[in-house]
Simulated assay, not measured.
Amino acid sequence: MDPVTAVAAASVALVAKGALESAAQEAGRAGWAGGARLLERLRARFRGDHAAEAALEGVTRAPDDEGALAHLERLLAAHMLRDHAFEAELRRVVAEAEAARTKGSQVSAGVIKNATVFNEKVEIQGDWNIS
């Protein structure tokens, strides 16, 4: 996948994630608050481009619609190829989102629940996701 397509795909994924969180009333609890900013930035960027506006609206209405996601991704990549400053801006947004995602998932093994760990066995219960 070429770099522009990768950034477009990541941006579309962030828009879809933001739409899902908003629909589930979780936007206030999200670890990264840039989803709403990204959505508003894309709305401003697409203003006047009726096909792009409709594609963005389609993803916000149905963020799990694979066809809508792919269509928005293609239109977003086209905008990025025409405007390198816009492409750089989206790269920064994607990098910021990735940093926020990994920041919240790091665990310091030195202190867990105020107990010092000396390379002994640590048991974890509950939901635990590692990517």
Rank of each mutant, 00 (worst) to 15 (best):
N114C: 14
A24Q: 11
S108D: 08
Q106H: 10
E21T: 13
G58R: 06
R74L: 07
A13T: 14
E40H: 14
T5W: 00
G28T: 04
A100P: 14
R37H: 07
V111N: 05
A13W: 08
L72K: 04
V93Q: 08
A44K: 14
V15N: 07
F86W: 11
K113R: 11
S22Y: 05
A30L: 04
E87H: 09
E40Q: 14
E89D: 09
H79G: 05
T60R: 02
E89P: 03
W128D: 15
V93W: 02
G110Q: 02
D2V: 10
E98A: 06
F46V: 10
W32D: 00
A100G: 15
H84K: 15
A70I: 14
E120C: 07
A16D: 00
A109F: 14
V107W: 01
F86L: 10
A52F: 06
H50M: 02
D83V: 14
A23N: 03
I112K: 01
K113L: 09
A27H: 13
I124D: 08
E89Y: 01
A68D: 12
L14V: 04
A51N: 01
K113A: 11
A68L: 12
W128R: 12
G35K: 00
H50D: 02
R29P: 01
G48D: 08
A70S: 15
L76D: 01
E96Q: 11
A13K: 13
V4E: 10
I112D: 00
L69S: 10
G34S: 04
S131E: 08
L75E: 06
D65H: 08
A27L: 12
F46I: 11
K103P: 15
S11L: 09
V4Y: 07
A78C: 03
E98P: 04
R61A: 12
V107H: 03
A68T: 10
A99Y: 06
I130M: 10
D49Y: 10
S108N: 05
R82H: 11
L76A: 04
V107I: 07
P3I: 07
V94M: 01
D49P: 06
A13I: 14
A36Y: 12
A99P: 08
A51Q: 02
E120V: 09
D127T: 06
H50C: 02
R29F: 05
V117L: 15
T116K: 02
E87D: 14
L20T: 04
F118L: 12
S108W: 06
A44T: 15
